[in-house]
Amino acid sequence: MPDFILRRLFQGLLVVLGVTATVFVVTRVFGDPVSLMLPLSATDAQRAAFAAQIGLDQPLPVQFWRFLTDIVTLDFGDSLWQRRPAIEVVFERLPNTALLVGAGLGLAVLVSIPLGAIAALRPGGLVDRLVVSLGLLGLAMPQFWLGLMAIMVFAVQLKWLPTSGFGTAAHLVLPALTLAMTPIARFTMMVRAAMIDELNKPYVQTARAKGMSLPRILRVHTLRNILVPFLALSGWEAITALSGYTVVVETVFAWPGLGLTAVQAIQRGDLFLMQAIVFVIAALIVIIGIAIDVAAKSIDPRIELN
């Protein structure tokens, strides 16, 4: 196991470096970071001074070497937009995103397991068809639209919750619900399909013949069996949420997390902040991947980690 983790960490490091290097190349080779980062009104002298200040007047290999050596100390340079270390901005916003993703996915897990299990008990029944339809709806609705609709209904019309912002538990409800919608749909579909599969297996028939109650069969046997694929899907959803959903949801709800910050960094041409965000997100994705594998192994010892 420690062997495995070490090897995966090493592979992860390569992935993170690869992603960051790609960002470096894309931003410096295709497009001029100086005109991107300075306002349209900047003079030629300002552009030159700025290029020199951030080292863009150096040859690319020199820039890349400096970039790599700085990364080791998590020094991504000062965010141009906020005029303070980019990594400081990232670490300030990361907990907000973690809170949002945690709440959203937590909610999705709590809702989808019972929903999927109930649907699986009578495939093709009324409940099942209802759940499947809702699931398809959840998958089809764009989060952007869903978020705005949720605001219109719960904040503007009913006035139950604030429209946007950050600070209290009430502010978390709508963004977390919006973020949870797609994962709920996907989890439910997955739980339903896996459960139908499991419930048709001979061991369930045997257990029932022994007189074991259905809830107990579900709890003791079948749910455990689908836990590993469920875990894998959760990891995947967490990664999608971090690198995609949060961008939309945080923008709609003015939630001060990494996703919104990434949008703003791109809009303002804040190259250094973008690099820091990409680096941290890539690192998180690697860590989540490893954590899921390790968790799967501890649930089902038959899994070969190599």
Binding site: P162, T163, S164, A254
Partner: peptide, 18 residues
């Protein structure tokens, strides 16, 4: 001052009285 990037959300906040 509240920082709300999305125009639709700014509109909602105005309509909700925030």
């Amino acid at each position: 001052y509240r920082f709300v990037a999305e125009p639709g959300t700014r509109l909602s906040g105005l309509m909700a009285g925030e």
